[in-house]
Nucleic acid binder design. Structure first.
Lengths: 246, 246
DNA sequence: TCAATAGTGTCTATGAGACATTATGCA
DNA sequence: TGCATAATGTCTCATAGACACTATTGA
């Protein structure tokens, strides 16, 4: 999208005398809250900082927005660089954090993104990270991350929990095909509450477009289960209500 | 919030050699979607640009974020400057828009905020605006605003419509005290659909903390009505569902 | 044979939606 | 008196939640 066609002659004259460097320096970054479900735990992708400031501390992956990039493009690039995922994952803007002093280098305004990815894409440590790992979010209570990343992570987790209620995004945590039990365990893990298997099954299958049956069955562990693929419905009607307590 | 206590000696040495101006220049602004309900219409506060670029075009109010300001503080300052409102209105971050080329002057990343205000705070034209007015959002279909402000406004309106379902924010559109009918007309105006008065009343009054009775009655137009104040509940349980069609 | 999970059926409580009825005050 | 609105009460239908029961497979 460009607005060049809207430039008037007055605009062009004005721009010729305009000095962008007259403003105080600000950097714009994207930070990623990458969530996955792994071994019954909701996990976030974290990197151990390999450069100062706060070298050695765990932080969210992220980086500067390139001059020609949109914010969404910068987030997708960072996600690909850190996880190898180029498509299929869910990626949405979360919120923007810009308190003065949140980064000691300079004024840094960070646009946070939330990504939901299936289990086991092996994370890749970038150039400024010494290590990259998925860590359970339950291990991350209290101020343990660099900068204000604890707060960003908390907002991402809460957004993800809320979105499972009224969207079909829980399926983006799973590799296809999956069973209704797999999907239920995603909900139970993200929300941290047990759900009634029978009622959950009835609600999922009665929501058109949530999951699509493959017609196949899988013998897994005890018993067997029908297999499904992701549906096409983004918005769930009716929603799957989240039980009150955790 | 500051992170200075976390600086290591290594950090301090690193910062001494750090040049913030090495990055391409970016400006950070806040833009405001200020919504109110007035004469049966959902209206947005717009200013007519008094300076280039796009002088004479209608735009959202907004401005640059000051060096020592948080983003929330900058938004609250702009809201006060344009409307005179210093407290009582609802103000929340909406989303961030940073496409290259969205502003012809330079790379501008704009953090959009959504404000819901009662009717009739007379808007104030700022230094860079020749005029400020509340205009019905129904008049603003199509690309009529400066920059990408049509898209920002659309997101703000949709956020407001969605939030009425599960929060008590509709009361922030009203001066106190108000009647249940007043509150219903807010919903009908924002959503653009008629609601059943009896069912609406039952749902509002059965939701604890949504509205608080004053015990007084008001003779208004035909008949009379009981008066209420805003309650304290932010989250509505159960939600007030939005009818499907518009 | 037992255990664990998948899948099916049923009952109850709750709330949404629709409608009927009464009360009130102004034109 | 007529009418528009507020306020109250009642009925039906859909769904959430709880529970019972059967089927299947591996230990």
């Amino acid at each position: 999208m460009t607005v060049d066609n809207y430039l008037t002659d007055e605009d062009r004259g004005f721009l010729a005398t305009y000095d962008p460097r007259a403003f105080p320096p600000v950097a714009v970054t994207v930070d990623l809250v990458v969530l996955t479900v792994r071994e019954g735990e909701l996990c976030a992708l974290l990197i151990r900082r390999g450069e100062p400031p706060q070298r050695g501390r765990w932080a969210l992956p992220g980086g500067f927005v390139g001059p020609g990039e949109t914010l969404d493009e910068a987030a997708a690039r960072e996600l690909a660089e850190e996880t190898g995922i180029r498509a299929g994952a869910h990626l949405e803007q979360l919120a923007t954090f810009g308190d003065p002093g949140r980064d000691p280098r300079m004024r840094v305004v960070s646009v946070a993104y939330l990504a939901l990815v299936p289990d086991l894409p092996t994370p890749i440590a970038g150039t400024d990270a010494s290590e990259a790992r998925y860590r359970p979010v339950s291990d991350l209570d209290g101020a343990v991350l660099a900068f204000d990343h604890d707060r960003i992570l908390a907002e991402g987790v809460e957004r993800a929990r809320a979105k499972l209620e009224y969207t079909g995004l829980a399926t983006t945590f799973l590799d296809e095909p999956f069973t209704v039990g797999d999907l239920r365990r995603v909900y139970e893990t993200v929300w941290g509450v047990p759900l009634h298997p029978a009622n959950f099954r009835r609600k999922v299958l009665s929501t058109p477009g949530f999951v699509e049956p493959t017609g196949e069955k899988l013998a897994t562990g005890r018993g067997w289960a029908e297999l499904y693929r992701r549906g096409t419905t983004a918005h769930l009607h009716p929603a799957i209500p989240r039980p009150p307590a955790a």
